[in-house]
């Protein structure tokens, strides 16, 4: 209950902070909205040229990509700045300010780095999902929708886990600005039908860094094409997130501060 009230007031503070520079806030919304349109553009070009991902129609691919965008946007809004803020605090030796608060440092970082700037990604993802869902053959059975929702939540957990793991590594590798790029490349495997990748990449994207859950598996479930491995991956996603949280808490012990 106390955590919720802290989170509520932190969100209010983050929104006040964001609207302190109104023009920048609305420009960010527009840019992030337009930026999210670039992902389906690839599918538009492929299908527009007469090519395709075997076994997947344009609207089905768009469904995968819209769910990926919504998942990614939710992670960006809720904890998109945890990585950069942790990195800055560690590099500048100001993480003491976080450790002075009587709560879990990760919870404090999540609460205070709520990022309304990424609402543009979320709006775009939701708009794309609405369009794709209206044109793809979504199964209306409760089981399919329930499975899709479950796998979507698992996908959000994977995205959150990725952000937290990257943030945790900054306690050891101070200023590791290249690491997010590597994770960004791994995430990209979740944007397309998994069947187009070689089996080794499928295994990694399902069981090691389960990015297939971010877009592909929930979309497949909504289309009635869920595979059993998706549910194994869903279980792993919770372990993945749990590992991220554990790693962050563990790495705080390595915090050294900066020279005084």
């Amino acid at each position: 209950m106390k955590s919720l009230s802290i989170y509520k007031i932190c969100i209010k503070t983050a929104v006040s902070q964001a609207v302190a520079y109104r023009f920048n806030f609305f420009l960010s919304l527009l840019i992030t909205f337009l930026g999210s349109l670039l992902l389906p553009l690839v599918a538009v070009l492929i299908y527009g040229a007469g090519a395709s991902f075997p076994g997947w129609s344009f609207h089905e691919v768009l469904l995968i990509q819209s769910l990926f965008t919504v998942s990614q946007a939710m992670a960006k809004v809720c904890l998109g700045n945890v990585l950069w803020d942790t990195m800055i605090h560690v590099r500048e030796g100001s993480f003491e300010v976080v450790l002075l608060k009587p709560m879990e440092p990760l919870a404090y970082m999540i609460a205070t780095t709520f990022s309304p700037d990424s609402f543009g990604n979320l709006l775009c993802g939701l708009a794309l999902f609405g369009y794709a869902a209206a044109h793809a053959q979504i199964v209306s059975a409760a089981a399919a929708i329930g499975a899709g929702l479950l796998l979507f939540i698992a996908g959000v957990a994977v995205m959150a886990g990725i952000q937290i793991i990257m943030a945790a590594t900054s306690f050891k590798w101070v200023g590791n600005s290249r690491l997010p790029e590597i994770f960004g490349s791994v995430e990209a495997f979740g944007q397309y039908p998994i069947a187009i990748f070689p089996s080794a990449i499928r295994a990694v994207a399902t069981f090691i860094v389960p990015v297939s859950l971010v877009g592909f598996f929930p979309a497949a479930a909504l289309l009635g094409r869920a595979e059993p491995e998706a549910f194994w991956g869903a279980g792993l996603s919770l372990l993945f997130l749990g590992f991220g949280v554990w790693l962050y808490q563990h790495m705080i012990r390595r915090y050294k501060g900066a020279g005084g």
Binding site: S5, I6, I9, T13, S94, V97, L100
Partner: peptide, 20 residues
């Protein structure tokens, strides 16, 4: 090292500390 939030008035930072 400031504990206040840079872009908003101190009173907003105090409200956050009240909750924390």
């Amino acid at each position: 090292k400031s504990q206040l939030i840079w872009d908003i008035p101190p009173i907003e930072s105090y409200k956050m500390n009240r909750a924390i």
